[in-house]
Computed example of a mutant assay.
Amino acid sequence: MVIDALLLDMDGLFRHWRDTGARAGERRAGLPAGTIDRYAYQHPNYRLAQLGVLTDDDWAEDVADRLAADFGPTARTAITPWRADRGEIDPTTIDLAGQARSHGLPVAILSNTTTAFRADLAYHGITTLFDQVFPSAELGVDKPAPQAFRLAAHHLDVAPDRIFFSDDEAVYIVGARRAGMHAHRFTSPAGLAARLTLLGIPSPCVRPSAASPPQPEQRQGRAADRARTCSANLATGNSPSSSTVSAGSRGTAAAHRCTCASRHARTSASRPGSSGQIDCASIRLRSTSTGVLTK
């Protein structure tokens, strides 16, 4: 197996949401907990924002208008704290991406998100971390539609079967595989590092850390939106195999080795006398030019 590019999800891998801004806004405006989730992420206009039909500002203003209509004008005071919260960046996965790029492997992001995505990258100071980014609002199609993955591959100028994709949502793994990509469900930074190592992609040793926060239960609205998106986009009853879902936990120990087992055609394992292992530092991967997606 030859991998020429990494395509990764953003939220759940590089960025985590605790929804502290939404809860602070609700307390300020005297709204019941979970109100912003319902009015923002469970409303159909959120999907329109993810597809670029509405801008991020249009969507936020619509949320404010509906809150004010139902709870009175003071409900608008909840918007500022909610909008100020841009999530928290995970330094462990940031390091993983940087290590892959340092060995010449392009790293790109495919995320179901709004037109605010590039501004969020700048806010967190990670704009230059990725070779390309593909927000669904710019693509005009979102995961798990295979077309979203094919468009990302087209802009990367890499064949889908030479791209490794990882996401924390199982149904998006199905979409990536239907597009022809090698896909693995993300469960932890250590699991991702182990899988990259097994593919012959250099990655730093990663140990489980409390610094990687779980996704908050408050994001139930966004989970429900994903389910609606998946129903609209996936014309299949298939689901990722249990072997794929658990592969990260099975291979975690491999992330702590300085050498990696040969799992693809670039190794010399088939040669007489070969040990079947290669020094990670000796791997040379094809580099592609850095670019950005334009509308």
Score class of each variant (00 low, 15 high):
3 I>F: 07
4 D>H: 15
4 D>G: 04
6 L>K: 06
7 L>G: 11
9 D>C: 02
22 A>V: 05
24 A>D: 11
27 R>A: 14
29 A>D: 09
31 L>Q: 02
41 Y>P: 01
48 L>H: 10
53 V>T: 15
61 E>K: 12
64 A>I: 09
66 R>I: 03
68 A>K: 14
74 T>A: 15
74 T>N: 12
77 T>V: 06
79 I>G: 04
81 P>G: 05
86 R>K: 11
86 R>I: 09
93 T>C: 07
93 T>R: 01
102 S>P: 00
111 S>T: 15
116 A>P: 00
129 L>R: 08
131 D>L: 05
134 F>P: 00
142 D>S: 10
149 F>L: 06
152 A>N: 02
157 D>C: 09
160 P>Q: 11
161 D>R: 05
162 R>M: 04
163 I>H: 02
165 F>S: 02
166 S>F: 05
182 H>Y: 06
213 P>T: 05
217 E>Q: 03
218 Q>H: 04
220 Q>R: 11
222 R>G: 14
224 A>M: 05
227 A>Y: 08
234 L>R: 02
241 S>G: 15
243 S>L: 11
244 T>K: 00
245 V>H: 04
248 G>Q: 11
252 T>K: 04
252 T>Q: 06
256 H>T: 03
256 H>W: 08
261 A>V: 04
267 T>E: 06
269 A>C: 07
273 G>C: 07
292 V>Y: 13
